[in-house]
């Protein structure tokens, strides 16, 4: 994966093609799990209803996987199922890459995850970024309370978040064919950001 090589943390994930294989993978990973429909041309899984959360047993996984496979359209091309542990965290962030017409490749950090566009609390920097730049992006966010200890969860590990931003920047430098990327949501699990869903657009 283009981003994992640069230290972006992803949940352990299994790629399978049938509902039965999905149930086997879930048993290995441990319940609850998430099952998503994946494919080279599939973006914005949440909006299309291609993500099934909090599946607690084999029957639920089997049923979800079956309906996801049925939801694929001819435009989607070859599809597969992604099975991952259901990570829980009350805070969602977003990070990504965007090619700006004026300033070239930029990296973004924001709060809100799937609500990010509505919250609109984001910071941008030009790629490449230093660790100091990345730290200042975290400082720029208005919703600082969300980054401290929150509802029984520890404060967000700022160094881990800096790693994500610097990792995105490094991925863009290493692969100039990347024109955009979304880590959305970037769920804070026990204080550490994990990219539950990622989209990379290449030229």
């Amino acid at each position: 994966m283009r981003l994992a090589a640069h230290g972006i943390p992803f949940p352990a994930e299994r790629v399978v093609t049938t509902a039965s294989e999905a149930a086997e993978a879930a048993a290995t990973l441990g319940y609850p799990v998430v099952v998503k429909l994946g494919g080279d041309t599939i973006a914005h899984k949440t909006e299309r209803g291609l993500v099934r959360l909090r599946l607690g047993d084999a029957a639920a996984v089997h049923e979800a996987a079956t309906s996801l496979l049925a939801a694929a359209t001819p435009d989607d091309g070859a599809v597969h199922l992604l099975v991952a542990p259901m990570l829980s965290g009350q805070r969602e962030l977003i990070a990504g890459l965007h090619h700006d017409a004026q300033f070239g490749m930029t990296v973004m950090l924001g709060v809100g995850g799937i609500l990010a566009e509505a919250v609109a609390d984001v910071a941008f920097r030009l790629v490449p970024v230093s660790r100091g730049d990345a730290a200042s992006m975290i400082d720029d966010l208005a919703t600082q309370k969300l980054l401290g200890p929150f509802r029984g969860e520890p404060a967000v590990d700022r160094e881990a978040l800096v790693d994500v931003i610097v990792g995105l920047s490094a991925a863009a430098v290493a692969d100039p064919s990347i024109v955009a990327a979304d880590l959305n949501p970037l769920i804070v699990v026990a204080g550490r950001p994990v990219a539950v869903d990622a989209l990379v657009e290449v030229a």
């Binding site: 990504g96 965007h98 004026q102 973004m108 566009e117 920097r125 955009a180 959305n184 989209l199």
Partner: peptide, 21 residues
């Protein structure tokens, strides 16, 4: 924009980040 990041990337936000950097 196709990406969430792109739809959040207004000219002013990018310019502001550039100034900070």
């Amino acid at each position: 924009a196709a990406s969430h990041t792109g739809s959040l990337a207004s000219d002013d936000r990018v310019f502001d980040g550039m100034c900070r950097q």
